[in-house]
Amino acid sequence: MYDEESNNLDMPCVLNIAESTHQMGKLNLIPEYSYGLSETDNCLIQGDNLHILQYLTKHISGKVKCVYLDPPYNNGESYLHYYDNMGHDQWIENISKRLLIIRELLSSSGSLWISIDDSELHYLKVAADKIFGRENFVSTIIWEKRTTRENRKAFSRNHEYILVYAKKASLWNKVRNTLPLTKEATDRYKNPDQDPRGPWQSVTANVQAGHATPQQFYTIISPSGKTHNPPKGRCWVYPEYRMIQEISANNIWFGKDGNGVPRIKKFLSDRKEGLVPETLWRAETVGTTSDAKKHLLELFSEISLFDTPKPEQLIAQILKISTNPGDLVLDAYLGSGTTCAVSHKMNRKYIGIEIGSHIRTHCASRLVKVVNGEQGGITDSISWIGGGGFKFYKFEK
Rank of each mutant, 00 (worst) to 15 (best):
E4L: 11
S6Y: 01
N7V: 03
N7W: 09
T21F: 07
G25L: 12
K26I: 12
S38K: 15
S38A: 13
E39T: 02
D41T: 07
N42G: 05
H59D: 05
K63G: 04
K65M: 09
K65I: 06
K65W: 04
Y73T: 04
Y73W: 15
L80G: 05
L80S: 09
Y82H: 02
M86R: 15
M86S: 14
H88Q: 13
W91A: 15
N94T: 12
K97P: 00
K97S: 08
R103N: 10
G110R: 13
S111L: 08
W113C: 04
I114V: 13
S115N: 08
S119L: 03
S119N: 09
L124G: 09
L124N: 06
K130P: 02
F137D: 00
V138T: 07
V138E: 04
T140D: 10
I141E: 01
T147D: 00
R152H: 08
H159R: 08
L163Y: 14
L163Q: 10
L163V: 10
Y165F: 10
Y165T: 02
A166E: 00
A166V: 00
K167G: 02
K168Q: 04
S170K: 14
W172I: 09
R176N: 04
T178K: 03
P180I: 00
K183M: 11
E184R: 15
D187P: 06
R188E: 12
K190M: 12
K190Y: 13
D193K: 01
G198W: 05
P199T: 03
Q201P: 00
S202D: 13
Q208V: 05
Q208L: 08
T213P: 00
T219I: 01
K226A: 10
P230I: 02
P231F: 01
C235G: 00
V237R: 07
Y238N: 08
P239Q: 08
R242H: 13
M243F: 15
S248C: 12
F254G: 01
F254S: 00
D257W: 14
N259F: 12
I264G: 07
K266M: 12
S269E: 08
E273D: 10
L275N: 03
E278W: 00
T279S: 13
W281V: 09
S290T: 14
K293C: 05
L296I: 04
L297Q: 09
L299V: 03
I303P: 02
L305T: 01
K310S: 06
E312S: 11
L314E: 07
K320M: 01
I321S: 03
S322T: 05
G326C: 10
D327Q: 03
L330Y: 15
A332T: 07
L334M: 15
T338K: 13
S343T: 01
K349W: 00
I351W: 09
I351K: 08
H358M: 06
H358N: 09
H358W: 13
I359P: 01
V370G: 04
N372G: 06
N372Y: 05
E374I: 09
G377Y: 06
I378F: 14
T379E: 00
G387H: 14
G388K: 11
K391P: 03
K391I: 11
F395N: 07
F395E: 07
